[in-house]
Design a protein around this nucleic acid. Structure first.
Lengths: 120, 120
DNA sequence: ACAATACTTAAGCATATGCTTCAGCATTCA
DNA sequence: TGAATGCTGAAGCATATGCTTAAGTATTGT
């Protein structure tokens, strides 16, 4: 059965972190690199016009958001993407977009058409 | 024909703005409200625990990102969502996610299977 | 005309972000 | 053993963010 499914009330700190992590070109480039497969910190840093230290700080932001996991073996840290977190952000956007696109009018019509006796 | 379509090189200031706009609970709540239909500035402010001034500033961020358009008639400003911008962010995420999920191995197999004579 | 409404703008302030440089610390290679 | 590699951590600093309060400007209702 079709739920009303209005966009849920929202102060979600996890989404704060994910969108914040994606709001930077360098971090998006790192995510883009990781979408092609795991990479070391140096590999992530290589195309970026900044110090390794800066990259490590960006990486910390990505890890804090849950978008990226990493593991150190020997002296090398290997990073990889957690697409489930990416997916959560995608779903949030998709819900608002589709909710808008199906339109209030259609929802109104649905409500009118539905049995009016059990309603808020 | 299927393109290689690696995630594109990225320093995209528009995405910076969109993700930054979404990286705040109050702004996401405003977007959620607008996904149900246009609203005035006061209507957007009403559920939020902050001054109207603060809301206007959040609105400025949303407008700068292109997510929200608004028009003033008389003394009332009415805001509405631009889902095409929302869609761009969704696409960006979706591309990285699916690129990861189809996996490097499968891409490697595809490349191997494809005619190997015209290659970099 | 007068007051209420619906924003608008500016100033100020505490905290956060995005770098930099410099120094440190385990691996791994020669 | 000593040097190169691959990160790690702490300052420090300029700028940006997220609020606040206070004052101002058009409408619109009485």
């Amino acid at each position: 059965m079709l739920q009303h499914s209005r966009p849920t009330h929202d102060p979600d700190p996890r989404l704060d972190a994910v969108f914040h992590a994606l709001a930077d070109g360098a971090r998006r480039e790192m995510v883009g690199r990781l979408s092609r497969g795991p990479a070391t910190v140096s590999a992530l840093a290589e195309p970026l016009p900044m110090s390794l230290s800066a990259v490590v700080q960006h990486l910390a932001v990505l890890e804090a958001s849950g978008l990226v996991k990493s593991e150190k073996v020997g002296r090398v840290r290997t990073c990889s993407l957690d697409t489930s977190v990416l997916s959560q952000a995608e779903v949030w956007i998709n819900q608002r977009r589709t909710f808008w696109e199906q339109g209030l009018d259609r929802l109104g019509a649905y409500l009118a058409e539905t049995k009016p006796e059990d309603e808020a």
